[in-house]
Each structure stands twice: as structure tokens, then as C-alpha cells.
């Protein structure tokens, strides 16, 4: 029963966006996956939720600026387990074009365990969907259930 619930649970990954000082390019691409019929992320059972407490898959954009670092870590801590963290765009992964800037604390995996990387500047909406599918796989592994 429990394993059945776990197996079913990955078919409803609720997404939560954290903007860690992003330029908004990646955020726009994230919005397109929900708002443009062509990409329709709801098909995978996803839903962009407003509260970190509802989230399963966390999509983080932006290079983690000094001002926003503590808030990002705090919000990330608020998300109930099990959670899968996806870094969207090159900024959270490596710092991207902002790397080694005076106000950049990133890359993000110095502070938060990242599970999936979706590089791109910004990544294609299809790329983000690919990342969400990959996150589902990792979520299943974390629950200890074979697909």
C-alpha cells in the first residue's frame, strides 16, 4: 500500500520556483511551460504552487546573489521532504556570466544539494520539461521504489 502510494506520488510533482537573483530570463521560460498551451506542464500532473510547503520539485534560477542567499536557504529549508532540487539555467549551476562577480555567492551547490541541472541561458521550455522528468526519476530513487 505504502509503496503503491509512493509510486503514484511522483505523478503529481508540484513545482515551486525560487528566484535566487535571476535576470528573469529563466523565470519567463518557466512561466511558458505553464502558460503556453504548446508546453503545458500540467499534463505531467505538475502545478506551480505558491507556497514552499506544497512543493515537491524546486526549480531554482539565478546565481545566488549575496543579498538573497539567506532567504533562498531559508525558503529551501521550509520545503517538506522528500524534495528534488533542480537548477535551471547556467547561473545556479556555475555562476554563468556573473561568475566571480563581487555580489555572487554561488554556485548554488556549495550550499544546497542539487539533484538535476538544466543548463542554458535560458534553457528551452522542452529542456525544462526534460529536467522535470529527470527529477521525477530521482524522486522515485529517493523514495526507494523501482519504476
Amino acid at each position: 500500500m505504502n509503496s503503491l502510494l509512493k509510486k503514484l506520488s511522483v505523478r503529481s510533482p508540484w513545482l515551486f520556483r525560487i528566484n535566487a537573483g535571476s535576470c528573469n530570463g529563466c523565470d519567463v521560460e518557466l512561466a511558458t511551460t505553464a502558460c503556453i498551451p504548446r508546453y503545458d506542464v500540467e499534463r505531467l500532473g505538475c502545478r506551480y504552487c505558491g507556497s514552499p510547503r506544497h512543493a515537491d520539485v524546486v526549480l531554482i534560477t539565478g546565481p545566488l546573489t549575496a543579498r538573497v542567499k539567506d532567504r533562498v536557504l531559508k525558503v529551501w529549508e521550509e520545503i517538506p521532504n522528500p524534495k528534488v532540487t533542480v537548477a535551471v539555467g547556467i547561473c545556479p549551476i556555475s555562476g554563468g556570466v556573473f561568475r566571480e562577480g563581487y555580489s555572487i555567492e554561488g554556485p548554488l551547490d556549495k550550499y544546497i544539494p542539487i539533484d538535476v541541472n538544466v543548463p542554458g541561458c535560458p534553457p528551452r521550455p522542452q529542456s525544462i520539461l526534460e529536467g522535470v522528468v529527470l527529477a521525477r526519476k530521482i524522486w522515485l530513487q529517493r523514495l526507494g521504489v523501482e519504476e
Partner: peptide, 11 residues
């Protein structure tokens, strides 16, 4: 080729 999503181990 835009297939870019990869797990952290392959970073």
C-alpha cells in the same frame, strides 16, 4: 542539440 538536463553526478 538542446538535450541538456543531466543529474548532478554528471555536472
Amino acid at each position: 542539440d538542446w538535450h541538456n538536463a543531466h543529474p548532478q553526478e554528471e555536472k
